[in-house]
Amino acid sequence: SAPCFSNGLPKPTNVTFSSVNMKNVLQWNSPESLRGAEVVYTVQYLIYGQKRWLNKSECRNINRTSCDLSYETYDHEEQYYGRVKAIWGKHCSKWAETERFNPWLETQIGPPVVALTPGEKSISVVLTAPQKWKRNAEDTSISMHQIYPNMKYNVSIYNSKTSKKWYKFVINYTLELSLLESETLYCISVQVYVPGPLRKTKPSEKQCITTLKDKTSELKV
């Protein structure tokens, strides 16, 4: 792109990586004083310890304030920097950089997929681990469980009849809740748990399901 003069144009602010399941998106705020102006942005990234900053061609002269760098930061064993500068006509700002980004430590682990099947006095819970972001749709999926082997699930079970909510730690993917009350609404949410400080995880949406009518009680009446 045409050279620009770095002469005092204010830099973008709050340049950070937003990361969920290793989908790593660089995001920033536009400079205060240039809000509304025709500003475009150009992004680069650096693999920590390597010589040169590299261009992200799809994020050259863009007018949005985010850029998906998941492909470039796919190796979660490395650390990265991202930087962005503002361009307005012939003028451009200095680079604004992120802190050093460590995907393995900083990505938020999304919720598992939760499938519930009601029985008369039971609910079967089947969990599918969240998947790492994929470069190509046809790539084989990598479960976040492979990346965090000591990952567990904290299942919360709310009994709407007794208004009691309790938790059950689960390591594998299936859980059979037995000897429940029939014809009762139970609400279940599951959150990934990975030992470690400030490990960000997101609980699954609460799902409510009613256990079936108890056929044996009908026979006895």
Binding site: L46, Y48, G49, Q50, K51, R52, E77, E78, Y81
Partner: peptide
């Protein structure tokens, strides 16, 4: 020195 690493973890 962003372009130097000491641990060279990989």
């Amino acid at each position: 020195f962003q372009n130097i690493t000491i641990l060279s973890a990989s």
